[in-house]
């Protein structure tokens, strides 16, 4: 909760250079995570560069290849309720609406959503050791309370999970993140955007220093006919996922032609296993088929005590959500299980 300077960005370039030239410069968009982290004394910006005046980042527009460009500064709610998103990417719309609350989704932006930090108890307590916050200090979650924590892709240094819902759908949709930085613009496939903790848990993603997300681009395939997001948590709303699943299917003649399954709440990034999707192709969409996919998705999953249940829960959620995707009308507010 340190003091800081504040400036409003007038252009993307000016924003990028303002942050690049400051030792502790940070962008601020919705602020819903940044201000929270700052109040917990977990981040100490010296300069906040407010992006909210950059109208070029506030649009949702169609792409020539049939895809859709989601401006980084469009709010989560504006995205979820946008007619084109609802019509062509209902999986994304429903997934966004299962996250946080209406109030937070009104402020939170698409770019900011990608950059949410973990909700690990120990990360959030400045007085606790935490390798993500204070490299080398240790990870009390491994031997402490790890109900929220990772069962896949974790390391001996960090078992935190990445909390975003939206990114789980973006992973299933194979979105591309477009960024601009001091070195120019580039595109990052969503699968490469977030990273596993490894020996460097402090780094959540592959964004370079001073890089700014400008948009998230969706390819044309939206799985509008067969999709579902299922979110399992400790209360029906306003809680992070213990396990979530985003499933998109293309079905022809009773057989799966194309499948995407991404898991949330289980790893340091949205979890996808291409082999698990490949095995579904040409199969009838049955619980047995999704169970096979689940085994591949969860291969090597490890529990740490309190989170052991996630392995079985995730398996069942993958199967259930596969079946829910066949009839998207079974989806319920808050991505609760179908009745």
């Amino acid at each position: 909760m340190n003091n800081f300077n504040y400036t409003k960005a007038e252009s993307i370039d000016q924003a990028v250079s303002a942050v690049a030239t400051q030792s502790e410069g940070q962008f601020i968009a919705g602020g819903t995570n940044l201000i929270d982290l700052w109040k917990y004394d977990l981040t100490h910006p010296e300069m906040l560069v407010d992006l909210n005046g950059l109208s070029e980042l506030k649009a949702i527009s169609e792409l020539p290849d049939g895809g859709l460009r989601l401006g980084a500064l469009v709010s989560n709610n504006a995205t979820a309720y946008h007619p084109l998103v609802q019509e062509r990417y209902p999986l994304l719309s429903r997934t966004i609406l299962a996250g946080a609350t209406a109030q937070i989704r009104n402020s939170a932006t698409n770019g900011g959503n990608l950059l949410q930090r973990t909700r690990c108890y120990y990360f959030y307590d400045a007085a606790s050791p935490c390798n993500k916050r204070n490299p080398g200090s240790g990870c009390p979650a491994i031997t402490g309370h790890n109900r929220l924590h990772a069962i896949l892709g974790e390391s001996e240094h960090c078992i935190a999970v990445y909390p975003s819902d939206m990114s789980v759908a973006l992973a299933a949709l194979e979105a591309t993140v477009r960024v601009t930085g001091p070195e120019g613009a580039r595109e990052i496939p969503i699968a490469d955007f977030h990273r596993l903790p490894g020996a460097e848990p402090a780094r959540d993603n592959t964004l370079g220093a001073g890089e700014l997300i400008t948009s998230i681009d969706l390819p044309s395939t939206g799985f509008a006919d067969h999709h579902s997001y299922l979110k399992l948590r400790d209360r029906n709303s306003y809680a992070f996922a213990l396990v979530s699943v985003a499933t998109g299917l293309e079905i022809e003649g009773g057989r799966i032609r194309n499948a995407r399954i991404a898991l949330g709440g289980v790893a340091h990034k949205p979890w996808r296993v291409p082999a698990a999707e490949a095995i579904l192709v040409d199969k009838a969409p049955t619980p047995e088929a999704f169970a096979e996919a689940a085994d591949l998705l969860l291969a090597g999953a490890t529990g740490y005590g309190h989170n052991d249940f996630k392995i079985e829960l995730a398996r069942r959620a993958i199967i259930r959500n596969g079946m829910m995707a066949l009839d998207p009308s079974t989806q319920r507010p808050g991505a609760q299980p179908s009745l």
């Binding site: 504040y6 601020i28 919705g30 602020g31 819903t32 201000i35 929270d36 906040l48 407010d50 909210n52 709010s75 709610n77 209406a102 109030q103 937070i104 009104n106 402020s107």
Partner: peptide, 12 residues
């Protein structure tokens, strides 16, 4: 829009 005033800086 309904928002949370605690997670918003006045200057924003």
């Amino acid at each position: 829009d309904r928002i949370l005033s605690c997670l918003t800086l006045a200057v924003m």
